[in-house]
């Protein structure tokens, strides 16, 4: 497609793509913030939720935090490679990151399957409703990030549009940060 000249201008000094990603993240902060804010208020009101929260698997959550942190490392290394014009290396790191996303989702599905079998479904109580809604919304972001990353990677390997590695990286780190907060909120605070 013909790229408009508008896209190449940079009056702020920040490249257009990166500036847009920052705004995407800004808008996501309030979306997650609204949900988690509501959760925190309810959680403070209902002491009884700690009994429900005791049924979450801290280990699974911790493993997933570790997986996401590691994938974050991979994507930043990919960004570093892309910055130095090494598309092949960036491609490998992008796919390592996607692999991290897969492991995250697999652990999550095993975890959820177990919980659902034990009867901890969304309708059991509001805690579980929030648990599945918040983690589900986050998982959707993980999936979206993986899809975008996969699409980008095929340009990256041809050394095309290398700046996009940084853009998806920033988004992926944000998804990571959301999980960093979800983990104590849903798993640790018991």
């Amino acid at each position: 497609m013909h790229q408009p000249i508008a896209t190449t201008r940079s009056a702020t000094g920040i490249p257009t793509g990166r500036l847009a990603v920052w705004w995407v993240i800004a808008s996501e902060i309030v979306i997650f913030g609204g949900l988690l804010g509501s959760y925190v208020m309810y959680r403070l009101l209902h002491d009884a939720w700690s009994i429900e929260a005791a049924n979450t698997h801290t280990l699974a959550g911790a493993t997933n935090t570790f997986v996401l942190l590691t994938s974050s490392l991979f994507v930043v290394l990919g960004h570093h490679a892309a910055e130095h014009g090494d598309g092949k290396k960036a491609f490998r790191y992008l796919w390592l990151t996607i692999l991290g996303g897969f492991i995250f989702l697999i652990i999550k599905s095993i975890e959820w399957t177990g919980e659902i079998h034990h009867g901890f479904v969304m309708t059991k109580s509001l805690f579980w409703a929030f648990y599945y809604t918040a983690a589900g919304l986050h998982a959707l972001h993980v999936i979206a990030g993986m899809v975008i990353m996969a699409i980008i990677s095929f340009d990256t390997i041809k050394n095309k549009n290398l700046h996009r590695v940084e853009l998806i990286g920033i988004y992926w780190h944000f998804v990571d940060i959301v999980w960093i907060f979800l983990f104590p909120l849903l798993y640790i605070a018991k």
Binding site: S27, V30, I31, G34, T133
Partner: peptide
Amino acid sequence: FMASAGPLIAGAVM
């Protein structure tokens, strides 16, 4: 709009 719509999007899901 961007700063205010977030909580309502979360609320709409709820």
